[in-house]
Structures are given as C-alpha cells and as structure tokens.
Amino acid sequence: MAPQTWFITGVSSGFGTEMALSALSAGDHVIGTVRSTPSRSKAASSASAVSAIESKGGKILHLDVTDSPACSSVFKEAESIYGQVDVLFAVEGLSESLARETAPHNTRVLLVEPGAFRTNFLSAYVLPKTLGNKYAPVNGVLEKFKGAKGMQPGDPAKAAARIVEAVRGTGMVEGWGKKGSGDGKAMGVGAVGVGQVLRLPLGKDSVERYEVKIEALKGDLEMVREAAVSTDYD
C-alpha cells in the first residue's frame, strides 16, 4: 500500500517515540512534535528519541499542545510537508461520539485503551509537598505507582506495532474486515482495521478490565431490563 503520513504529538518519549519509529519502519511518513524546551531531566532522552526518528526519515516540529493557536499553524505546516496528513495520533481522552461526528467526512477513529506499559508515565507526574490524610485514597494509588515503576508488563514497542497494523490493516489485524465487528462496522467508516473496530485494548490487563466491565454491564442490564423497556408509549 502507498505510504501514509502520520502526525504524532509528543514523540520525545513513551508511546509517541515508539509510534513514530513503528510507522517509519512500516514505510510510512512521520511528522512528530516535541516541546521546544524539554525539562533538564528529560533533555538527553528527548534528544536521543528525536535523533532516532530523524535518522529514519521522520520530520520534527516544535509544538506546545496547550497553545491552541499554535496547534492550528503547526498542523498546517505539517500538511505542507507531504501535501496531506492521513493519520493523527495523540495521547488524548476522546469519546466515541467523535467517531460518529467524523464518519461523514471519511475520517476514521480508533480509541486505543492500553493497560500498564513500561513508559515514563509513572515518573512523569508531579506531587505536591503534602496531600494530607483526607487524600488517603490518592496517596494509596500513588504508592502503587511507585511500586509499579519499571515493572509494567506491557512492551510499548509491541503496542505501537499493533496500532500501526490496525491503521494500515496489516499484520495481526489483517482479516478483521472478514470477521465483522461492532461499532466501527455499524458506522460504516472503513473496510479493515480502524474501520472495523472502534476500541483497541492493548495488554492482558486491559483485556481483563474489559471483560470485567462487560460482565458488570450485562448484570446491570438484566437487573433493570423489565423497568427499562416499560417506558415507551403504549
């Protein structure tokens, strides 16, 4: 298939780096963004990631994603490099309503929901000097984060490879279109990969959470079914 052009935010570390390298290895074009001034503690690793991406042909632009006007101008600059952007990858919380809103414009959405992957996520948060006893539940979660740092089971390089395959309809996801699926097919937003599924859980822990939630939803539905279907006009 013809190379696709990816616009990937935050390529200086974590999933952003792995996504850029994986897409480049698949033969696609990559335009990645980094903050203009990374923190001192991250400067060396950021420079290494940028160097690795550029050595494989990736293009790097500077962008602070909290600067809305800059986002628009940088995206236009990205489009001018290869003439268009085919795939946008951003680590953002997006709802499934976005998929329905963009489907008429032939824009496909894939919600990637990863489990615990060995990125810098658990070391990136900043703690206040004290949270106090009333935030005990938060303290407990943060302590778990500390204990899990560097022990996460997920390999971000493998996750990036699965995402690229999902977008391209190749590798382990080839044939999704033949199997049929749920939300993506119902919205008619594609043929294979992204167009056939809306959500892509990654990691055994993510799949297990999916299964627990699905069973809980089934239980709720069966419990309230009679009341739920009693509200239409006679």
Rank of each mutant, 00 (worst) to 15 (best):
R35F: 12
S45D: 11
V167C: 06
H105M: 03
V164K: 14
T37S: 11
S13L: 04
L21A: 04
K178H: 11
R35S: 03
T231L: 02
P128T: 07
D220V: 04
P153L: 10
D232K: 09
F117K: 00
F15M: 04
P3E: 15
Y125C: 00
E208W: 04
G188L: 08
A47Y: 14
T170W: 09
V194N: 01
L98K: 13
V229M: 05
A43N: 03
G132D: 03
A160W: 12
V141K: 08
I8P: 04
A49D: 12
A148L: 05
R225N: 11
S55K: 12
A116V: 01
S181I: 12
G16V: 08
T5L: 01
V197D: 05
H62T: 10
A227Y: 07
G147R: 05
A90H: 05
Y125N: 05
L21T: 10
E77N: 06
V141T: 06
A23P: 03
G219Q: 10
R108M: 12
I53V: 09
E174P: 00
G14A: 06
I31V: 14
G115W: 03
V224K: 11
A20H: 08
F121R: 02
L21D: 06
V197C: 04
E165W: 14
T130I: 01
S13Y: 14
V30Q: 12
T33G: 07
T102V: 04
S36K: 14
E113M: 02
K185T: 12
H62Y: 13
S12V: 09
V229H: 13
V109Q: 13
G140H: 04
V167S: 03
A49W: 14
A216D: 08
G57R: 06
P3G: 07
E101D: 15
K134Q: 11
A159G: 09
N106G: 03
V173N: 01
M172Q: 11
A216C: 04
N120K: 13
A70G: 04
F15P: 01
V109H: 10
G93A: 13
R35E: 11
M151Q: 15
E208S: 06
S97Q: 10
S95A: 04
L94F: 12
V192Y: 08
M223F: 08
T119M: 05
A103S: 14
C71S: 13
S80F: 15
V87S: 12
S55A: 08
A23W: 09
K218P: 02
L88I: 06
S25L: 02
Y233T: 01
V194C: 10
S41P: 00
E211H: 02
P153H: 06
S55Q: 04
S123P: 01
F75I: 01
T37A: 09
K204D: 00
A160I: 14
D232P: 01
K134N: 07
A228P: 02
N133G: 10
M223A: 15
G175C: 11
